[in-house]
Simulated scan of single mutants.
Amino acid sequence: MIAQTARSAQCCEIAHTETVEDYLRTIFKLAGRGLAVTTSALAEQLGVSPPTVSAMLKRLEASELIDRSAARSIVLTPHGDRHATGVTRRHRLVETFLVEVVGLDWDEVHVEADVLEHAISERLENRIDTLLGHPTHDPHGDPIPPRDGEHVESWAAALGSVPSGSRFRVQRVADDDSNALRYLAERDIKPGAILEVMSREPFNGPIWVTVGARSHALGLTLADLVHGETA
């Protein structure tokens, strides 16, 4: 049974259940990373079958939350984007609250926020925002959409694309893999860290980086989770 969210969306024909909000936020996330939003990509991200995704996409399209007329990609309508941005804002505020107030580690909060993002009221959301001092980014470096105004969801270059000899400032780290987050944190690779890119092994070998006085070898899969700019 699909659980009902604590919020209502009177402007939509579709009930904004947890499942609906999960779909909207996932579409928002994939599009923000510049990835093609397809049925198979959503199925992989959400851990459901492609037929299940197709059925939900029909409902979202009927409610004018998504547009599937674009070739081979699903796009949020302005209406859908507004709801997706709201869910994303709650998710990232909750992650920040769980780290800064509750004391959880950054690799623990994504799953918890997946649950709590559907349950908090607008009043509680605003109180959390005020308590935290209106943060602009969550613990992973993801920008927190403002309550009002424009929001730009963009990703800087991945560490895996940076040439040897570069200084690299970490801005964002993809938060899908808690084990990867834990591994990176143990090596002080978090938003704000400055890395020295020392060398790249051939044939898709690891990238050697120095953080402070320590050197680490990062495989390309891991390095591509870390985004930032040359410093």
Rank of each mutant, 00 (worst) to 15 (best):
I2E: 15
A3Y: 13
A3M: 11
A3V: 09
Q4S: 12
T5E: 13
R7H: 08
S8F: 11
C11R: 13
H16L: 14
T17Q: 05
D22S: 12
L24W: 02
L24K: 01
R25K: 13
T26C: 14
T26I: 04
F28H: 14
R33L: 09
R33K: 13
L35N: 14
T39C: 13
L46Y: 10
G47W: 07
P51S: 10
A55G: 08
A62C: 00
A62G: 06
A62S: 12
I66P: 05
I66R: 04
D67V: 00
D67L: 01
S69G: 12
A70F: 12
A70Q: 09
S73M: 08
V75M: 10
V75K: 14
T77M: 04
P78S: 12
H83P: 01
A84G: 04
T88I: 03
T88G: 05
R89P: 01
R90M: 03
R92H: 15
L98M: 09
V99Y: 01
E100R: 15
L104R: 13
L104F: 14
D105S: 07
E108D: 14
H110Y: 11
A113E: 02
D114M: 10
S121I: 00
E122H: 09
L124T: 09
N126M: 12
L131N: 00
G141F: 03
H151Q: 05
S154M: 08
S154I: 01
V162R: 08
V162A: 08
V162Y: 06
P163D: 02
S164V: 02
G165R: 05
G165L: 03
Q171T: 08
D177R: 09
S178C: 03
N179Y: 11
N179T: 11
R182M: 13
Y183A: 05
Y183M: 06
Y183V: 00
Y183E: 10
L184D: 09
A185G: 03
M198N: 05
S199L: 03
E201Y: 11
P202S: 11
F203M: 12
V211F: 02
G212Y: 02
R214D: 14
S215N: 12
A217F: 01
A217D: 13
L220C: 01
T221H: 11
G228H: 00
